[in-house]
Design a protein around this nucleic acid. Sequence first.
DNA 1: CACTGTGAATTGGTTCACAGCC
DNA 2: GGCTGTGAACCAATTCACAGTG
Lengths: 221, 221
Amino acid sequence: MYPKETGRVPNIVIARLPLYLRGVRQALEAAAECVTSTHLGEQASVPDTQVRKDLSHFGKLGQQGRGYPCVQLESTLRTILGLDRTWNVAVVGAGRLGRAIISYPDFTPEGFVIKAVFDSDRRRVNTVIHGIPVRPLSALPAAVRDSGLSIAIVTVPERVQDVVDTIVASGITAILNYAPVTAQAPSDIAIRRIDPILALQSLTYFLSHPSCDDRRRANAV
Amino acid sequence: MYPKETGRVPNIVIARLPLYLRGVRQALEAAAECVTSTHLGEQASVPDTQVRKDLSHFGKLGQQGRGYPCVQLESTLRTILGLDRTWNVAVVGAGRLGRAIISYPDFTPEGFVIKAVFDSDRRRVNTVIHGIPVRPLSALPAAVRDSGLSIAIVTVPERVQDVVDTIVASGITAILNYAPVTAQAPSDIAIRRIDPILALQSLTYFLSHPSCDDRRRANAV
DNA sequence: CACTGTGAATTGGTTCACAGCC
DNA sequence: GGCTGTGAACCAATTCACAGTG
């Protein structure tokens, strides 16, 4: 366990922790013993004082005059984030995008294992993608119980709200949404959006308004 | 032109405008004449008062008692965001991910046209992806001048900082970064990150801490 | 001396309350 | 009555200033 969690931790702090984790790992690769808040801040594009404030939510993790011990901080961050185990993931939507994600090799080494694939299109059901058989969406609730699925990645292009409702009803509480549509869900469900179009559409604002020079902060978005 | 831009507009407001744009378009499809701040807010998962505050930065766009006229608001938002034209995009990195993005059919209808592809791996140079020849990265600066490229999508798995430096040196000021690495750039360069691993790694925090029930706001992240 | 940890000050963003208009 | 626009009040997050420590 990590030292202690002092009160409520702002969500925005949580969102930065994975970036700090990458910073420590980079330092570890360079065989460093300690890493400073300045270095971690560079990785996350935030000032050093922000890093210290953020980490201080979880106790006194550093050593004055030295920095944060790499091995220990890496482990602490993993524990805080729940990355000290693997997570079983379901992909919903076996179209072009879904197939690309299933074949994407970078999830597994980070502990995210795609265990099941679902689609409501009969023509796709029972095909096999990357060794995983595609099942009908109606089989999701049973699969959640039987295979311990915790996270759903949504890649369907439409009827997204229906799909999300089904996912939520099946007991999954964490969703990564690749669909270019905002889905509504109860507030105890965590949703993250991956939406390149949205990102491009705010980039063009800055291209069209070269005068406003405060992009630094925008980059955090 | 849209009415007027009252002072500095917070970046976070800009990031919400594309969501409002989707909300208006949805209303337009339903043949509605006006759309309310409540409706737009549902699309963006923000309260109605937020929508009104945000839009008020650009003048009085609505009509009391009715809402916002759809046709007009759609056009105004497009203009504000610089979406009333097409943008030429360069993809840097012709690997698996790059090829998937180039073949992704959803950019073009939104006005983002992939005009050129670059890779520094000689074995990939001169291959053709989706009709577009892969050129050496060294050809980027000339291509920026000649083809009016405005946005770079980075899909290389490593040496990301070098690639970003090259892109910035070539005069491009807007970058969509798919690499799982934070790149440094001058503050007049706008960067957006597409990073599913990062998203998953903060989702697991909430899976590991079922007690904290304030995910609603987290979903905005 | 270099670095962390943290209360205090500041900035920035959201929400409220209500005036104004259709 | 329904809905926008907006100053004022509130809340959250960042930054500052500096005390504390190896």
